[in-house]
Design a protein around this nucleic acid. Structure first.
Lengths: 370, 370
DNA sequence: TTGTATGCGTTATCAC
DNA sequence: GTGATAACGCATACAA
């Protein structure tokens, strides 16, 4: 059963009421200077009286633009992405744009299909947050797409707008701070390889290690993928090597939280035996029980910047691709301090211990009371 | 400068190529049985070859529907809402619907204006999550709106679809559990008055207190508004009364977290001196350092249910408004236990202490390192 | 300064 | 079974 179409007040109704032509009403509404001032006023008044607003759909068909931007992101339940969307939406809504959303769940298929769908719907721009922007299929897609703005992941070889944060500088600031406290062996837990942001965080770590003459032991660098689980594994590994690091920088806060907890389980004190810094400044990091130091991601600022960039592009037509890097801030909380002088002798996690730990200590919602 | 319209493959192009009429192509594509099977096959092949897909915008103008749902919520950076949207989007996307989003930031103005904007854009439905649904202005708006589905807040007097969770039963389950552990004086921290969900949580508490013959002292019920700050204040108040409660149920996890921390600051042990339960099961609650017991909100299930309801409405035309209540689960973590036998004598927070505490203990991002 | 005609891409109606 | 045409609501080019 189809929607019985709602009766709509059209521009023709308004014109008829005023005994004018629709085009005159249109011109008046769009602020064209050809309309006599007095006529315009009558028209405006009539529109208000009849509660007339032009149909965005009809406009879209006629003009080929929809005053809509499509946003693609991996997970709308992740507050970091939520903050970006919020910053973006606040700017766009103020300019009359609506936000179309797609949560792609890390699936390349959903990403491509959502991008195609949105393009087909004539969105005026596409915002891709931490998406797998690359590959032949993607490059073909870009041809058919409206303007694209990227964040978190750059598209290698493609000249697209990018708005990001200073990941490289963030890592360096963290290591400078740790080095000033006296740390020499600092571990690093990385993010997904496909993420240019994660890559920059690693690069910043490496450059700081070199410039500050820290211990360049490659065993101090562990892979990770931004999940708690990968954080557990990396922490277990880093804290089990013979000469364990006195500090660890993780490429995001989630993995850093895992480090904190593994450390506690190994009876290390924080920050005496181990200092920990993360990336992003997610909500939990500010909890006193966690008190995780971190390099803040300016998420809502990124959203705002993307919005402003889009408005600029819409207003000024084609212009060269932009490349913006927003500053980060080191947020110092209780998880860092000078390394302890004494060498503590510590029990290790065996593999069995780790598994038992993973199963029992974190109680997700699956463990419920009937 | 206007968008130079992208060249588009239209149904006419396809028809011309095949020497058919556009209407035949349309009929074939829409699966109408009037088209000869062989013709249909040729048409489908040609469409694939020319990469033709019907324009959603033109369709929208013609049919009066857009295959889009508008979602209004207070804050897209709040993961609970994010989870609902995620659940909703996964259902709708699978059926070819896109999700239009508006983060209203608790502003009544933005709510009404976003709703009007979306309705004007011919969305097929409006989903309102925890929105101020009420008042004369709203009721007038409803007339002009497409189907509406509510969650978290019911609209008094209006017969709209509502999909929610068993808040009342959740509170009762929590109190039953606490009572079984031996608690008799149980405090409650409420949510916003306008929220029907918050009201139900309070009602459940009251009914449980009565049915279980717990201490009905009205001083045990404190107002709150879901923010950390209100949780601090309520906790401070509840834990400072002469005969303080041995357990506290907060209307959401955020306030419960505040209770946990205030308790620690007052040198109460958890759960020996105080048991704490929250509502929602937000991410932090599962952290070992927090280990907050809670009544889980089935957020993504709510999103799914809303999606299924919408599809159902679209398919079957007008039907009476639905009223769905999803079950909750009590998630038991370390924050609850039997009340301690001994009476601990404890220092109190003075007002000054509270203020100093609020300023220093939680370190938000404003306290940053240059 | 205002009015008329046309097209945006699609689908429904009706004639063939 | 297939084809011509009108209509959805608007904005524009052009005529008056």
């Amino acid at each position: 059963m189809r929607n019985p179409r709602k009766p709509q007040v059209t521009i023709i109704d308004v014109a008829r009421e005023l005994k004018l032509a629709p085009s005159t009403v249109s011109n008046a509404l769009r602020g064209k200077p050809v309309v006599a001032e007095e006529t315009r006023k009558r028209i405006l008044a009539q529109c208000r009286a009849m509660n007339y607003v032009a149909s965005p759909v009809a406009r879209a068909l006629r003009e080929g633009r929809t005053f809509t931007v499509g946003v693609l992101l991996p997970d709308i339940a992740n507050p970091i992405f939520g903050d970006i969307v919020k910053g973006l939406d606040s700017v766009m809504a103020a300019s009359g744009f609506a936000t179309l959303l797609a949560s792609t769940e890390g699936s390349r298929e959903r990403f491509l299909s959502a991008a195609r769908t949105f393009a087909k719907r004539d969105v005026d721009a596409l915002v891709m947050i931490s998406q797998p922007v690359g590959g032949e299929e993607f490059e073909r897609l870009v041809e058919l797409c409206p303007p694209i703005v990227l964040t978190h992941r750059k598209a290698a070889g493609l000249d697209l707008d990018y708005i990001g944060m200073d990941n490289h500088g963030g890592s360096m600031a963290a290591l400078q701070h740790l080095a000033a406290l006296g740390h020499r062996r600092i571990g690093f837990i990385g993010g997904p390889e496909q993420s240019s942001a994660a890559q920059e965080r690693l690069d910043g770590y490496r450059q700081a290690v070199q410039e500050l003459s820290l211990d360049p032991d490659p065993a101090l660098v562990c892979p990770g993928d931004y999940t708690l689980m990968s954080g557990f594994k990396a922490a277990h590994h880093l804290l089990s090597i013979k000469k364990r690091p006195t500090a660890i920088l993780a490429a995001n806060d989630l993995m850093a939280c895992a480090v904190l907890d593994v450390a506690v389980q190994m009876e290390l004190t924080i920050p005496g035996d181990l200092s920990v810094i993360g990336f992003d400044d997610i909500f939990v990091s500010s909890f006193p029980q966690i008190a995780l130091s971190t390099i803040r991601q300016p998420a809502s600022e990124i959203g705002n910047a993307i919005g402003r960039r889009l408005i600029e592009r819409f207003d000024s037509g084609n212009c060269p691709a932009c490349h913006v890097v927003l500053p980060t801030q080191l947020v110092v909380r209780a998880s860092i301090g000078p390394p302890a002088r004494r060498k503590s002798t510590l029990g290790r996690f065996s593999e069995q211990d780790l598994n038992a730990y993973l199963q029992n200590r974190w109680k997700p919602t699956s463990q419920v009371h009937p």
